[in-house]
């Protein structure tokens, strides 16, 4: 895999992460389901996963950039495993709405495990890390848009979480936006 192809894959990864964050937002706004603390932490880990691809696009592919994403994915998988185990008892209805039979935290666990596997597979291709004879190409418009999407969605989560939790600890089972309460 050439560095150019590796960068294209990283741009694609950013669009997937932006879609995940947008999907979580859509569920929150359309279904009116406020994310619990562990749900928020899983969103945070998906956002943190995006730092590796951003560095790869900006500075060129490096193993250390992929390592950052791997670390974020491992912590994210631990968080979602914890939430799956919280609702594993027979008769427990789980937290929130199920999508295609699985709750969001189960999908998050599948997503983090998929990220770990895919990152490991991409790391197998050593040619992407070879120094190119020409300088690292400047990122194109599609890459810029992907980065703007991810940063914009993370910033939107800052506002949403502030509205939901206010200036105190978030409720375990939130039902109203604390700052919009009358």
């Amino acid at each position: 895999m050439t560095p150019t192809r590796a960068i294209a894959l990283n741009v694609l990864a950013l669009y997937v992460l932006a879609a995940l964050l947008a999907g979580a937002f859509a569920a929150q706004l359309l279904l009116g389901e406020l994310p619990c603390p562990l749900c928020l932490l899983q969103r945070i880990m998906f956002a943190l996963l995006a730092v590796g691809p951003i560095l790869n696009i900006r500075f060129g592919p490096r193993p250390s950039h992929y390592a950052l994403s791997l670390l974020a994915a491992v912590v994210g998988a631990s968080v979602s495993t914890r939430q799956v185990l919280l609702h594993i008892m027979p008769g427990d209805a789980g937290y929130g709405t199920a999508l295609f039979g699985y709750h969001y935290y189960t999908w998050a666990l599948i997503g983090f495990i998929a990220a770990i596997v895919l990152l490991s597979l991409v790391l197998l291709f050593d040619r992407q890390f070879e120094k190119a004879p020409t300088a690292h190409p400047t990122p194109g418009v599609i890459a810029h848009v992907a980065v703007c999407f991810v940063i914009g969605l993370t910033a939107a989560n800052v506002a949403s979480t502030l509205l939901e939790c206010g200036f105190k600890a978030c409720a375990d089972d939130p039902v109203v936006y604390e700052l919009l309460k009358r």
Partner: peptide, 9 residues
């Protein structure tokens, strides 16, 4: 969580 999202941004 607000602080964490802000720090990531």
């Amino acid at each position: 969580f607000t602080a964490l999202f802000l720090a990531i941004a």
